[in-house]
Amino acid sequence: MTDKLLIRYSYNIAANDFIAAGKGSSSIKNTLKSMGIDASTIRRIAIISYEAEINLVIHSYGGMLHCDLYENKIDIITEDKGPGIENIDLALTEGYSTATESVRELGFGAGMGLPNMKKYSDDFDIASSREGTFIKITVLLQEV
Protein backbone atom coordinates (compact mmCIF):
# COMPACT_ATOMS: atom_id res chain seq x y z
CA MET A 1 0.00 0.00 0.00
CA THR A 2 1.35 3.41 -0.97
CA ASP A 3 1.20 6.29 1.46
CA LYS A 4 -0.97 9.15 0.29
CA LEU A 5 0.70 12.57 0.35
CA LEU A 6 -1.51 14.95 2.32
CA ILE A 7 0.42 18.18 1.74
CA ARG A 8 3.83 19.37 0.55
CA TYR A 9 5.58 22.53 1.71
CA SER A 10 8.47 23.65 -0.50
CA TYR A 11 11.12 26.29 0.01
CA ASN A 12 13.63 27.60 -2.52
CA ILE A 13 17.00 27.85 -0.76
CA ALA A 14 19.65 30.13 -2.25
CA ALA A 15 23.34 29.36 -2.03
CA ASN A 16 25.30 31.52 0.44
CA ASP A 17 22.18 33.35 1.67
CA PHE A 18 23.00 33.34 5.38
CA ILE A 19 20.43 36.13 6.02
CA ALA A 20 17.52 33.86 4.99
CA ALA A 21 19.11 30.65 6.29
CA GLY A 22 16.76 28.88 8.66
CA LYS A 23 13.52 30.52 7.49
CA GLY A 24 12.28 27.40 5.69
CA SER A 25 12.96 25.09 8.61
CA SER A 26 11.41 27.58 11.03
CA SER A 27 8.27 27.70 8.90
CA ILE A 28 8.11 23.89 8.88
CA LYS A 29 8.44 23.81 12.68
CA ASN A 30 5.68 26.41 13.18
CA THR A 31 3.37 24.65 10.75
CA LEU A 32 3.80 21.31 12.51
CA LYS A 33 3.13 23.00 15.89
CA SER A 34 -0.11 24.49 14.54
CA MET A 35 -1.15 21.02 13.33
CA GLY A 36 -0.74 19.55 16.82
CA ILE A 37 2.18 17.25 15.97
CA ASP A 38 3.83 15.99 19.16
CA ALA A 39 6.78 17.98 20.53
CA SER A 40 9.29 15.13 20.22
CA THR A 41 8.59 14.71 16.50
CA ILE A 42 8.68 18.47 15.94
CA ARG A 43 12.09 18.64 17.62
CA ARG A 44 13.47 15.91 15.38
CA ILE A 45 12.03 17.51 12.23
CA ALA A 46 13.33 20.94 13.30
CA ILE A 47 16.87 19.59 13.69
CA ILE A 48 16.74 17.66 10.42
CA SER A 49 15.22 20.46 8.35
CA TYR A 50 17.56 23.12 9.78
CA GLU A 51 20.67 21.02 9.12
CA ALA A 52 19.37 20.24 5.62
CA GLU A 53 18.67 23.90 4.88
CA ILE A 54 22.05 25.08 6.17
CA ASN A 55 23.80 22.43 4.07
CA LEU A 56 21.99 23.77 1.00
CA VAL A 57 23.15 27.30 1.84
CA ILE A 58 26.76 26.32 2.56
CA HIS A 59 27.55 23.52 0.16
CA SER A 60 25.26 23.73 -2.88
CA TYR A 61 24.58 26.07 -5.77
CA GLY A 62 21.05 26.38 -4.39
CA GLY A 63 18.15 23.98 -4.22
CA MET A 64 14.83 23.01 -2.71
CA LEU A 65 13.77 21.96 0.77
CA HIS A 66 10.50 20.00 0.87
CA CYS A 67 8.40 18.83 3.78
CA ASP A 68 5.92 16.10 2.79
CA LEU A 69 3.20 15.22 5.31
CA TYR A 70 1.52 11.83 5.31
CA GLU A 71 -0.86 10.30 7.84
CA ASN A 72 1.90 8.25 9.45
CA LYS A 73 5.16 10.02 8.58
CA ILE A 74 6.91 13.21 7.53
CA ASP A 75 9.53 13.27 4.80
CA ILE A 76 12.13 16.03 4.58
CA ILE A 77 13.61 16.12 1.08
CA THR A 78 16.40 18.25 -0.34
CA GLU A 79 17.36 18.53 -3.98
CA ASP A 80 20.25 20.74 -4.99
CA LYS A 81 22.10 21.79 -8.11
CA GLY A 82 25.57 20.58 -7.21
CA PRO A 83 28.52 20.35 -6.83
CA GLY A 84 27.76 17.03 -5.13
CA ILE A 85 29.37 15.19 -2.24
CA GLU A 86 32.67 13.59 -3.18
CA ASN A 87 32.71 10.98 -0.39
CA ILE A 88 29.35 10.32 1.29
CA ASP A 89 30.80 7.98 3.94
CA LEU A 90 33.32 10.63 4.98
CA ALA A 91 30.63 13.34 4.92
CA LEU A 92 28.57 11.24 7.35
CA THR A 93 31.46 11.23 9.85
CA GLU A 94 30.86 13.53 12.82
CA GLY A 95 33.17 16.54 12.67
CA TYR A 96 34.14 16.16 9.00
CA SER A 97 33.45 19.34 7.04
CA THR A 98 34.35 20.87 3.70
CA ALA A 99 33.07 24.31 4.81
CA THR A 100 35.36 27.23 4.07
CA GLU A 101 37.05 29.19 6.82
CA SER A 102 34.75 32.17 6.17
CA VAL A 103 31.68 29.92 6.72
CA ARG A 104 33.20 28.57 9.94
CA GLU A 105 33.81 32.13 11.15
CA LEU A 106 30.04 32.64 10.84
CA GLY A 107 29.51 29.72 13.22
CA PHE A 108 28.59 27.07 10.64
CA GLY A 109 30.43 24.11 9.14
CA ALA A 110 31.12 22.03 12.26
CA GLY A 111 30.59 18.80 10.36
CA MET A 112 27.41 17.74 12.16
CA GLY A 113 24.82 18.39 9.44
CA LEU A 114 24.55 15.01 7.75
CA PRO A 115 25.32 13.04 10.94
CA ASN A 116 22.52 14.85 12.80
CA MET A 117 20.11 14.40 9.91
CA LYS A 118 20.77 10.66 9.94
CA LYS A 119 20.73 10.41 13.77
CA TYR A 120 17.26 11.95 14.13
CA SER A 121 15.67 10.08 11.20
CA ASP A 122 13.82 6.79 11.03
CA ASP A 123 15.04 6.37 7.46
CA PHE A 124 17.83 8.23 5.65
CA ASP A 125 18.62 8.04 1.92
CA ILE A 126 21.22 10.07 0.06
CA ALA A 127 22.44 10.11 -3.53
CA SER A 128 24.98 12.53 -4.94
CA SER A 129 26.76 13.33 -8.18
CA ARG A 130 28.44 16.42 -9.64
CA GLU A 131 25.00 17.55 -10.84
CA GLY A 132 23.59 17.61 -7.33
CA THR A 133 22.55 15.82 -4.18
CA PHE A 134 19.20 14.29 -3.26
CA ILE A 135 18.43 13.49 0.39
CA LYS A 136 15.22 11.97 1.73
CA ILE A 137 14.73 11.69 5.48
CA THR A 138 11.70 10.04 7.03
CA VAL A 139 10.37 10.54 10.56
CA LEU A 140 7.52 8.29 11.63
CA LEU A 141 4.66 9.97 13.45
CA GLN A 142 3.76 8.88 16.97
CA GLU A 143 0.44 7.09 17.30
CA VAL A 144 -1.98 8.88 19.63
Rank of each mutant, 00 (worst) to 15 (best):
I48D: 13
A15H: 15
N16K: 15
S26D: 06
L5D: 04
Y9W: 07
N12Y: 11
S26N: 07
N12C: 09
N30P: 00
A15F: 11
I42P: 09
A46G: 10
A21C: 15
M35A: 03
L32P: 02
I19R: 05
S49E: 13
N12R: 15
Y11M: 06
I37N: 03
N12F: 10
T41H: 00
K4M: 01
Y11C: 03
E51R: 13
I19H: 00
A20F: 04
L5Y: 03
L32F: 02
A15K: 15
Y50I: 11
S25M: 14
A20C: 05
A39N: 11
A14D: 11
R43Q: 11
I42F: 05
R43I: 12
G36S: 06
K23D: 00
N16L: 15
S34Y: 03
I42T: 07
N12P: 00
N30H: 06
S40C: 03
G24V: 07
G22L: 09
G22D: 09
R8L: 05
D17R: 02
G24F: 02
R8D: 02
S26W: 00
I7E: 11
N16E: 14
A20P: 02
K4W: 00
D38R: 02
G36A: 01
D38K: 05
L6C: 04
G22C: 07
I47S: 10
N30D: 06
A21Y: 08
I54L: 13
A52G: 14
I54Q: 13
T41P: 02
K4Y: 01
N12M: 11
M35F: 04
G24I: 05
A15D: 10
I13G: 09
D38G: 01
K23A: 05
A39W: 07
S49M: 14
L5G: 00
A39V: 15
D38L: 01
A21T: 15
I28L: 13
N12G: 09
Y50M: 14
R44K: 15
I13W: 11
K33M: 06
Y9H: 04
I13D: 04
I45A: 06
N16T: 10
N30L: 02
I54R: 12
N30G: 02
I54M: 15
I47M: 14
D17F: 04
A14L: 13
G22E: 07
I47W: 12
L5I: 08
M35Q: 05
S25K: 14
K4F: 01
D38V: 08
N12L: 12
I47K: 13
A14Q: 09
K29A: 09
I19G: 01
L5Q: 02
I47P: 08
A39C: 10
N12A: 10
G22W: 08
S26Q: 07
I47C: 11
S25Q: 12
S10M: 04
N12H: 14
A39H: 10
E53H: 11
I42H: 06
S26E: 09
S25C: 14
A14R: 12
M35D: 01
G36M: 06
K23S: 07
I37Y: 00
A46E: 14
N30M: 03
K4T: 04
R43L: 14
S25D: 14
K4G: 03
A52Y: 10
L5R: 03
A46F: 09
A14H: 10
I7T: 07
I13R: 07
Y11W: 08
S26Y: 05
Y9M: 12
K29N: 08
I37F: 04
T31G: 09
G22A: 09
A14E: 13
K33W: 02
F18Q: 08
D38S: 06
I48A: 11
